[in-house]
Design a protein around this nucleic acid. Structure first.
Lengths: 237, 237
DNA sequence: ACCTGAACACCGTTCAAGT
DNA sequence: ACCTGAACACCGTTCAAGT
């Protein structure tokens, strides 16, 4: 009785010489992460998923770490491909649009979020270059609006850190809630705390909502606007 | 020849009945993390460090996850013990002091940072209560200064997310640089980018400096100040 | 040059005991 | 009640082959 090709107990047939490509491994790995999360990815299961010997992967990637770097790079590329071009007439609109898109896209795709945000990852030079181009574009808008190069850079990084911080914390809380039973509000802990009690409805287990994120961005924009105004020619006084 | 007590090859003597305490396990684990990082902690090595059978740990903690939760809780307690009481006369001083201390303390202790920030961790109710008290204190300062409860809460969380985001990103970059060879500036990538080129010295591989963090906090405070002023009785006009 | 299974050292966890 | 080693299924990686 000849072994059926994809039977679970069948002995895998040896792959032909050029039949495995690094691209295929990366794509398959990201595909598999969709089912098993990035942290849960294992070399044996990936090999099985790709219908390849475990050790074959090591021909293209010298370690799991190395493979994960490639995954991050690919994830980053896919992420940036989804980012719409800079939009907005005013500098503050540009920032708002950019970081709102940034968060929306990564929140919608946990695998990209895990690879791009949670994992640092060393990127290839061209990936890095593409990012920097985008950043440069934003900085130039800010400089044109009257900020110094330093102020523009600080502004960008502040909002970037804030946005990535949001994604990080939210992702962290989600994994905790998934493991643990649902989030009890624990409002009783705030019994003797008047201010916290009055807002505890909004901050139950529902992590960082769109409104909260937006409010944080707006506060930063307000700060930047004030900074800019303080150096513009004062009108009266 | 009688086995020497702590010889590397000696068979460990059976521990007496009450000689292991959960507290001891937690303390020993955090101690060990100082040498092997939190991610590198393993049950067998912890057992060896504690001079205890591996499986004995499972009598007090039903899983490694469970133990890590206890570690996070302990780390959180130690962290909060280091936080000085709220200081500052003005609400903005209070916020600045608080988040600066927050960052300074956790940056100085990678193990606490890993347990408190990088790992979410479910906390015990009393740990949570102590945190909330501190938050309530800050919110009350803000409300007394004229913010609504909602505004105060948003302000707190925005700065909290920003600060934790800083710690997260910095910790992430540090681990990458530790694995990889030192950070090459890669300035050549920014050749055709005038603004980025002009600031690339400040943002080489030196992650988020004290100045950058402070600038982000100040920008948020400026935003809050403007928000508050916009609702105070307008003087002229 | 490319693909592979066997083998190794390690991990978290369970189970059936010992005291 | 508390402590334990043996055993299990899994992991990442190496090595010595096969083609």
């Amino acid at each position: 009785m000849p072994a059926r090709p994809s039977s679970s107990t069948a002995v895998r047939q040896r792959r032909a010489r050029g039949s495995i490509s690094p691209k295929e491994v990366v794509t398959g790995a990201i595909e598999l992460c969709r089912t098993e999360t990035v942290d849960g990815l294992s070399m044996p299961r990936l090999a099985q998923h790709l219908d390849v010997g475990v050790t074959s992967i090591y021909w293209y990637f010298k370690s799991k770490e190395d493979l994960l770097d490639a995954l991050s790079d690919e994830a980053f590329t896919r992420f940036y491909a989804q980012m719409p071009p800079l939009a907005g007439r005013q500098w503050d609109e540009v920032l708002r649009e950019y970081f709102t898109n940034f968060r929306t896209i990564l929140r919608a795709d946990p695998v990209l979020c895990d690879l791009v945000i949670m994992r640092g990852g060393r990127y290839r030079d061209d990936t890095l270059g593409r990012t920097w181009e985008r950043i440069e574009g934003i900085l130039e808008v800010l400089v044109a609006a009257g900020f110094t190069a330093d102020e523009a850079t600080t502004a960008y990084f502040t909002l970037s850190v804030y946005t990535r911080g949001c994604l990080f914390i939210e992702r962290n809380m989600r994994t905790i809630e998934d493991t643990e039973g649902g989030g009890h509000p624990k409002a009783h802990l705030a019994e003797s705390m008047p201010v916290l009690s009055s807002v505890i409805g909004r901050y139950g287990s529902n992590m960082i909502g769109d409104d909260d994120f937006a409010a944080g961005v707006e506060n930063n924009l307000r700060g930047l606007r004030t900074l800019l105004a303080s150096r513009k020619p004062q009108r009266r006084r």
